[in-house]
Nucleic acid binder design. Sequence first.
DNA 1: ATGGATCGTTTGTGTAAGGCAAACGATTTA
DNA 2: TAAATCGTTTGCCTTACACAAACGATCCAT
Lengths: 162, 162
Amino acid sequence: MSGYTRDVTQLPVVDQPPPLSGALLEHLARRIRLRAEAVLAPLGLRPRHLVALTVLRVHGECSQQALSATLAMDGTNIVGLLNELETGELIERRRSPQDRRRHIVEITDTGRALLAKAEFALAAAEDEVLGALDRNQRETLNALLQQATAGELLVFTETGGA
Amino acid sequence: MSGYTRDVTQLPVVDQPPPLSGALLEHLARRIRLRAEAVLAPLGLRPRHLVALTVLRVHGECSQQALSATLAMDGTNIVGLLNELETGELIERRRSPQDRRRHIVEITDTGRALLAKAEFALAAAEDEVLGALDRNQRETLNALLQQATAGELLVFTETGGA
DNA sequence: ATGGATCGTTTGTGTAAGGCAAACGATTTA
DNA sequence: TAAATCGTTTGCCTTACACAAACGATCCAT
């Protein structure tokens, strides 16, 4: 599965490094996050909340530890994060009927509404940072990110949690 | 300039939020960063170094405070970051002839080499996270990020630093 | 039924990133 | 000559996390 043979059908030109996105991803994320903080504060949100809500909107409901894996964040910290979101009734924790130890986490309508509101408010900030991209390109970018994000959960859906 | 009228030539369908990338950007960046740390450690690098080097490769040489602005990081912290990079001879600080208070920061050949080496090492980690994107999409993604990143510096190039 | 695993939770500790402020030497500019 | 600027050093503070240990509730296997 991990034996992903990179496309070396031709000769390795000059041993050129593959197109790498991580650093740029991080760089742009930071620039946006800094501006986002100021915009989100009045809404009682911080960047981490935005990320969690966004992920919860993409995926449907999910167990708390699945969320922990998806956000790549320690389980103990997820508790606190969800507490904050639950206080604002942005997410809902309910017991799983199948396994009553589990919490089923889901974004609420209030959560969706606030998320949408936040997104409107953030548009300007993003425009500022992603100014070099035109509308089309930004949509392409977003589609790619969305697809990449949605892809993760397949792993956990397939595996089920083994 | 900031009066960017979003394309509302038609009726605002249902007041749908604009395509937002910030949260997803941050989410994916985090997932990659965590895996990257392990890969970079043996090279004596941390994610922040990778970001700095990558940015320095995209832009050419630049003053230290321009870098501070580009990385959106406090000037005092830039000093330490550059010190670490300079110790490894990955970047070079030299005095500007025009204004000898200024430091001209530039990535060295050693820096480029190590950066390339790191990128090779990181490919697997990215493959893992961006697995839902095919080769073409990943190239598109990278091109967009590159373009967005390169765009920032225009601001400072134009303004000159006023 | 009993014992061992599992899920979420609490608490507590540690670390790394980074902001912010003050003061300094070297330099430029007015 | 005086004031502003660039990088630098020092010191303090906050935030986001990871990690470990212990707990109650629950599931599961024997």
